[in-house]
């Protein structure tokens, strides 16, 4: 039996006006048909920081994350507001392709295309109308460097991406996303399919990337959340229960449900 926790008692931080936010959601709710998978999420994501979303399986982390760049279109009904540069991008008439250019996403399973390493990166650029050969070359190099993959693949850019190791594939997926020069990078458990060494590499990459991008990462690994994130949100059964600076969350959780989850005595 799962212990019952009150959804009334939450501890969700808001940010003062002088903190500039990359994105913010207001009353975000998500429904899969009749399944109310996300209730009233009000979260702000500070610029150039890493925010971790943690919580048990099925608590709605992916559901929330996928709503942020409208990947839930045609899959779920998303209500509420998603503020990005002062625009509510949850309105039906915004250009979702443009949104996804600025808000990139990396998935749990490394999912490079069955194309060469170079083609994987060039694909998205071409799809967005970037054509010049020199510019493409340059973006391939900078994005691979940004994802800390350049040194490992610079001599084999025309090899199939599927020949890379899982960790390299995932960094290629990150490179592919940052080649578009987005503002925000969403990552859904990017390390869950990786070994510890590849995980460290990806984490180092993220810490480096936060200088340029605002990052939101879903993770099941609490050490990982502690290592990389500045802010941490705890999800429980479709509710955001606690959102505090990571240091606070792990040393001094505010409410019982978070305490139990972090100490491992959940449920």
């Amino acid at each position: 039996m799962l212990k019952q926790y009150s959804f009334e008692k939450t501890a969700v931080q808001t940010f003062p006006d002088n903190v500039s936010l990359a994105m913010r959601t207001e009353n975000l709710q998500v429904f899969y048909g009749a399944n109310h998978a996300m209730h009233d999420a009000d979260l702000g994501f500070p610029k150039n920081q890493i925010t971790a979303l943690i919580g048990a399986s099925g608590s709605g982390k992916s559901t929330y994350l996928r709503s942020l760049n409208r990947m839930n279109d045609n899959i779920a009904t998303v209500t509420g507001k998603i503020w990005y540069h002062g625009v509510d991008i949850n309105e039906p008439n915004v250009n979702i392709y443009e949104i996804r250019r600025h808000i990139g996403m990396v998935f749990q399973r490394p999912n490079p295309f069955a194309k060469s390493i170079r083609e994987n990166i060039v694909y998205a650029l071409k799809a967005n109308g970037i054509k010049g050969k020199a510019e493409l070359e340059e973006r391939v190099e900078t994005s691979l460097k940004g994802a800390a993959l350049w040194d490992e693949v610079k001599d084999s850019l025309d090899k199939s991406a599927l020949a890379l190791s899982g960790g390299q594939q995932q960094r290629l997926c990150i490179a592919r996303s940052i080649a578009m020069e987005p503002d925000v990078l969403l990552l859904d458990e990017p390390c869950s399919a990786l070994d510890p060494i590849s995980t460290v590499k990806v984490e180092e990459t993220l810490l480096e990337l936060q200088k340029k991008y605002s990052i939101i990462i879903v993770t099941h690994n609490m050490q990982q959340a502690a290592r990389v994130s500045s802010q941490c949100a705890f999800f429980h059964l479709g509710h955001v229960m606690e959102y505090t600076p990571t240091a606070t969350m792990f040393s001094n959780p505010q409410i019982p449900v978070t305490q139990d989850y972090i100490s491992g005595s959940f449920g």
Partner: peptide, 21 residues
């Protein structure tokens, strides 16, 4: 499925996704 998702998440349109991926 994940090819399609990857492509859409990169800002490719539905048609680009169908024709190129």
């Amino acid at each position: 499925r994940h090819y399609k998702e990857a492509s859409l998440a990169l800002g490719a349109t539905r048609w680009q996704t169908v024709s190129r991926v």
